[in-house]
């Protein structure tokens, strides 16, 4: 189980690194926004990233 989790963690880091430029852009976009738009963008970014990382195995 731990081995499986470790493997997923390594994979998640790799995927996140692949997405690093996109994430930088989204963080910049979030910081450029204010109010409700900022909150929605930030929340959407985090949720999408979480889904993206949780579905690594499924997408492969």
């Amino acid at each position: 189980m731990i081995k499986k989790l470790w493997a997923w963690l390594i994979e998640a880091i790799k995927e996140t690194l692949n997405l690093s430029w996109t994430l930088v852009g989204l963080v910049i976009a979030t910081l450029t926004l204010t109010g409700s738009a900022q909150q929605v963008t930030g929340l959407a970014t985090i949720i999408t990233l979480a889904i993206w990382l949780l579905t690594i195995g499924f997408r492969k």
Binding site: T32, T34, A37
Partner: peptide
């Protein structure tokens, strides 16, 4: 969403 942003802020975003 975005109603509480100024037009200028929207453009910059």
């Amino acid at each position: 969403i975005g109603d509480d942003m100024t037009t200028d802020q929207k453009e910059k975003a």
